[in-house]
Simulated scan of single mutants.
Amino acid sequence: MKHFLRPLFDRVVIKELEPERFRRSGLLVPAGSNEPPPQHGIVLAVGQGQDWWEHVGFRMPIQPGDHVVFPASAGAWVEVDEERLLVCRVAELLGVMEEIPDGPEPGRVVD
């Protein structure tokens, strides 16, 4: 039987991507830094958010399939069907990696 980990409240389930893909993404940690570099992965599942979010018009800012960056200290690692997954709160995420087309930066005027 296969299992699915359904996150509760404002938690997300992330499958970490391989470190070599991280280097190709363009994110760099300065040399000599004692902090481990941020990690990244693909969101597999998203909780429904906190019960008060709907009243203030806030929705979960990520969805399954998003490529996210998170600190090495984020959340808790669990093993489901021999697969290592991270469960963390959405507030622990550093950001979402998005692809932009080649060309000028958005909002930048080109002469």
Rank of each mutant, 00 (worst) to 15 (best):
E18Y: 08
V56A: 07
G75S: 00
G47H: 03
G32S: 11
V80G: 02
H67I: 07
P61S: 07
W77V: 08
Q50D: 06
G107P: 04
G49Q: 09
V80I: 15
D51W: 13
P104S: 12
I42D: 00
H67L: 14
R21Y: 14
A76C: 10
P71L: 11
I62H: 02
E16H: 04
Q48Y: 05
L44R: 14
E82T: 05
S33R: 10
F70V: 05
E20F: 13
D111W: 10
L17M: 14
E16Y: 01
W53K: 07
V109C: 07
S33L: 14
V110Y: 11
G41F: 04
C88M: 00
A72Y: 10
A45L: 10
E20R: 12
K2Y: 11
K15F: 12
A72H: 15
L94S: 11
P38D: 09
V46I: 04
E92K: 01
E92G: 02
V46R: 02
H3D: 08
D51P: 14
A91R: 14
W52D: 10
R24Y: 10
L86M: 05
R24M: 13
C88N: 04
A91V: 15
I62V: 15
G75L: 00
P64A: 13
R89C: 06
V13Y: 03
R89G: 15
E83K: 11
P19H: 02
D66M: 03
L28Y: 12
E18G: 09
L85T: 08
V87S: 00
W53T: 01
D111M: 04
G47A: 01
I62T: 01
V56I: 15
G65K: 02
D66L: 01
A74C: 06
L94G: 13
L8G: 02
I42L: 13
P101F: 11
E98R: 11
Q39Y: 04
A74S: 15
L5A: 07
A45Q: 14
P19I: 10
L86D: 03
V78G: 01
S33Q: 08
H40E: 12
V13F: 03
P106H: 11
G41M: 05
V96L: 01
R84W: 12
V109P: 03
L5F: 11
R59C: 07
W77H: 06
I14P: 06
Q63D: 03
P71F: 08
E20A: 11
D66N: 14
C88I: 04
